[in-house]
Design a protein around this nucleic acid. Structure first.
Lengths: 352, 352
DNA sequence: CTGAAAGCGCTTACAG
DNA sequence: CTGAAAGCGCTTACAG
């Protein structure tokens, strides 16, 4: 029975080719190439010969075959909210870099904070047999994540009702609290928050930090200082909403923006109605961005430790992959207040 | 011989399980699940039963096994210069989105424009059996790319000495020419360029466009208006070099920056020595960036059609994968001049 | 010290 | 109309 499958791809060189050339069995080649030569007591002579031939033929093990046999693909799935957002892009870069050091590759996808898209991504990654996941979950993704059967590390947010999950997040409450306290110290008295309608933990905590800071300082924290915007607006929509909010709340003297894209839209909104950031209205944003550093006036923010987030994510996941621990690792990192001109009542106007 | 491999992963449900439950062979199941039921003349009755069971068991084909057998992994490798750079992050997002529509997933990596890193990435992607590649090549990567044996589409730059490669690039010469001509029209007379030491085609073309535009307008295009910086400086290094260049060439009245990160560093450098963008010194950058839009004064640029680049890349690659054409597809897209305040001799000072 | 053989989960040419 | 069997390229328990 002569089977000639019509496989239209160039066959690479396999363990068999090496075995043939070395005059040994594929088994022996496999042992040697996997560094088990001594353990399996293959003679020095044979080992050397095999290694030499493998080098000459530039043998590269077929990861598919290996994965099929061992169940390990040396691939991790990275699910972010939006790879084009600088925070996630920067984390992705660190993750890819670090993963590489451990021999892992990264498959990625963006959810756009859309539940259905997230579920689709999980499904695809699952049947591609990724070894583990780093996930920025959308709302209501808890069941899918629990049923994943592989190590998972959450990022940016987590599910309070899943006690035993691993995650790396920042202290959103502390970040918001510090940001708002800073505004208070600078003398601002009527502070508003622009946040999203999301009820996920990270946004809730930022709002809590905001409210708590106001209360601690005896400032009004009523409903009318809180503005929630739906996540799925486009830039123009955000700007329109923020502008309108500012116009109907002219007594506000400072704003806290709960995400960097809200902050960016905030800058445009404030400008649109002719106010001057810092002097007319103070501002602090959650999460740093190149724009905040370069804008005039520069924008104060509470910055996430991007590098460390990326590193911790991978190290946690690798630890789970190599020797799955039982105790959930939950990392909460602090944010750093970066004081800039936007939160100073009197700003020197560079471009004046 | 009872072999119990110690595979510490949860086995999913396989074609065999379905076959067993349906009382047919795995072959039949495979045919039906691959939509070849009619072609192979499997009875309606059996087909329905199989589909129903597959649905009930939530069967997902193991892509590794399928890939091993068919030689297709439905995975493409995306190699960019730096995934944290907004241009590449935005292209990556479009690529991932579009690939998904065709059932492909994306493995990615950043070269940092480092030859060795690029070669390492190619090697890893190769032995992971990706079906095709989208590559932002570094210098001297031509040989490796030619020997890849799988469809490749280059982006951002290409190798003039490889005639038959597929690529999607922008018209760098036109972009630079338009940018510089715009400065001339605005009345700037002594225009410099900040570019990199890279001798790759895209940078060469930008420089050529710059020089050509100056010559066409009878303006000086000598060596002293050209400043080349090594790619591997950090931000501080770029700023220092640009600042120094500005101080030793005080007669310059406008600058053209050949990349967006150079433009961003340029903003900081110009500020550092107390000059006002637009009035004291005009500026245009290659490639748009959120910062350029939001900065005051806003920064004029020649923008790349990011969406279209991403879409064309994937469509070209998919076309190659599905029915490898013989004629090389070479797409050259135009850049769009976005006129903003930085290239106006008299800038209205918003924040004054 | 080394190798034959099974098996990971698929696909597909061939037989009946 | 359906199925047995080979084979993709590995790894590994077992035999000798």
């Amino acid at each position: 029975m002569n089977i000639k499958p019509n496989l239209n791809f160039v066959k690479g060189i396999s363990i068999k080719d090496i075995a043939q050339e070395a005059g040994v069995s594929p088994t022996t080649v496999s042992f040697v190439l996997n560094g088990k030569g001594k353990e399996k007591r293959i003679s020095e002579q044979v080992s050397k010969r095999i290694l030499k031939i493998a080098g000459k033929l530039k043998y590269k093990p077929n990861q598919l075959a290996r994965g099929l046999r061992t169940g390990k693909t040396k691939t991790i799935g990275l699910i972010v909210e939006d790879i084009a957002n600088s925070f996630f892009a920067n984390v992705a870069k660190v993750v890819e870099d670090e993963a590489d050091k451990f021999g892992y590759k990264v498959l990625f996808g963006s959810t756009e904070d859309n539940e259905e898209k997230a579920k689709g991504l999980l499904e695809v990654l699952r049947y591609r047999q990724v070894d583990g996941y780093i996930i920025t979950p959308t709302a209501n993704l808890d069941k899918e994540i629990v049923s994943l059967q592989k190590p998972v590390v959450l990022m940016d947010r987590y599910f309070p009702n899943i006690a035993d999950s691993h995650y790396v997040v920042v202290d959103n409450f502390q970040g918001a609290y510090v940001a708002v306290s800073h505004l208070v110290e600078q003398g601002y008295k009527k502070i508003g928050i622009i946040t999203t309608t999301s009820s996920q933990i990270q946004m809730q905590q930022r709002l809590d930090g905001f409210v708590d800071a106001l209360k601690k300082h005896g400032l009004p924290a009523g409903k009318n200082v809180i503005k929630r915007l739906p996540f799925d607006l486009d830039r123009a929509g955000f700007i329109q909403e923020i502008t309108q909010y500012l116009q109907t709340n002219k007594d506000l003297d400072a704003l806290f923006f709960a995400t960097n894209y809200l902050g960016i839209c905030g800058i445009e909104s404030i400008r649109a109605i002719g106010l001057h950031i810092g002097t007319d209205i103070g501002m602090v944003s959650f999460d740093d961005h190149d724009i905040f550093r370069l804008h005039s006036p520069s924008i104060t923010c509470v910055a996430q430790p991007v590098e460390e987030i990326g590193r911790r994510l991978i190290h946690l996941l690798i630890a789970e992959l190599e020797n799955s621990s039982t105790t959930p690792q939950q990392v909460v990192l602090s944010l750093e207040l970066r004081k800039r001109e936007s939160s100073m009542q009197s700003v020197p106007h560079e471009n004046a």
